[in-house]
Design a protein around this nucleic acid. Sequence first.
DNA 1: TATGTTTGTTAGTCTTGGCTAATAATCAAA
DNA 2: TTTGATTATTAGCCAAGACTAACAAACATA
Lengths: 222, 222
Amino acid sequence: MIAQTISVEDYLKALYGLGALTDFVRPARIAVRLSISRPSAGAMLGRLEEGGFVESEKGRGYRLTSEGAQRALRVVRKHRILELYLVRVLKLDWEAVHEEAERLEHALSDRVEAAMSHALGDPEWDPEGQPIPTQDLQVAVRDLLPLGASAPGGDFIVRELRNEAPERLRRFRDRGLVPGARVSVEEYDEIDDLYTLRIGRKKVVIGTEGLDGVFVEAATEP
Amino acid sequence: MIAQTISVEDYLKALYGLGALTDFVRPARIAVRLSISRPSAGAMLGRLEEGGFVESEKGRGYRLTSEGAQRALRVVRKHRILELYLVRVLKLDWEAVHEEAERLEHALSDRVEAAMSHALGDPEWDPEGQPIPTQDLQVAVRDLLPLGASAPGGDFIVRELRNEAPERLRRFRDRGLVPGARVSVEEYDEIDDLYTLRIGRKKVVIGTEGLDGVFVEAATEP
DNA sequence: TATGTTTGTTAGTCTTGGCTAATAATCAAA
DNA sequence: TTTGATTATTAGCCAAGACTAACAAACATA
């Protein structure tokens, strides 16, 4: 069989992150996501298939089995609970916690996970606005749109930041792009690819690049 | 060079635990302590010496260098802070936390360690009564004696439990043998090797075996 | 259709950290 | 001093998880 190593957990998490719950994902994408060579990714996916965590289809790639999804979600849950715990209880910097959680998640038992979750009041969202899988691994689904692809005139609420780089997260925070913030797209300059946003009462000009990973929901009420 | 892997941290911690701060420790003892074969222990100690974490003397064994001691104490500090945090803040069972800390210690950054320590009021002792190395890695020294080697008639205070097995710790707790408890040795039956102790107001009969790791201080005042 | 790019796969290596079996060196006790 | 037990060391092996280099298949596009 295949052991539940840190490496295996990282692969499963990456697969989940790339949508392998429902879609087939090809080794090359995993390789990029994990900064690993293609042959290494291929070999590991082979082992994961042996172990029953993923299944493959000839030219389409790999998909998580329910066993694999289970394991992946368990790790995702630990990660997100850790992030929230570190921010809210231990007062760590918002931008720092992703990195910390990345290491701790592999060492956190279900027992400690449960204790932290309980201390937080069994929260639903992590500091980046991502859903925390429940104890029995259900994940809340929302219909969000990328802010970097919305037409001018829209009025939105920031819901989720799907971006892991601490520098990028710091930029988001500095600009007020945090979950719950109200944003309206005032203008889009197609030639220079620049959005003019109103965030709260500040005006900010950002390119599509700088909005990568910001997901929003249409605001219903002003 | 040699990397700061989990394995390396475990060796350094084991060395510290066996007194390699001051004394030379031979590979065979490390092997037993870590449940590892002697050749493996020998090889790793060689690597640790290469890396400057330990120094050896021909037939005497290995001793931590100041670099090695530093690393070892850092891990010990993380371990003990984690134990206390898990017990006091997250309300985990006293007997369970050693095992949890054993895994988490390797993933805990200095930053999170500091935050936990601060949340606990920078404590001096862990739940088993062992000293927590300070931020700058100073360790409090006390003069304790093993309860299992004391003459009848003595009046003591339990200070430290140097025993990691959860079942053993549970026995200690059930019998009231926890740090701070008052114990007097009422009788010692040499033939059957049985101590009759008064712990608080309970009378308990235990053999030397059952007292392994219980360290006490002579009580000055009743 | 021909060409260039992206993919997957093979083969061969490396490092870490383990293992056993066997031999050599030490130490303690008869 | 010899014997027996404990140690250390050597040699050879294994598995996980990574790597590069090379090639083959697939896809896309001029």
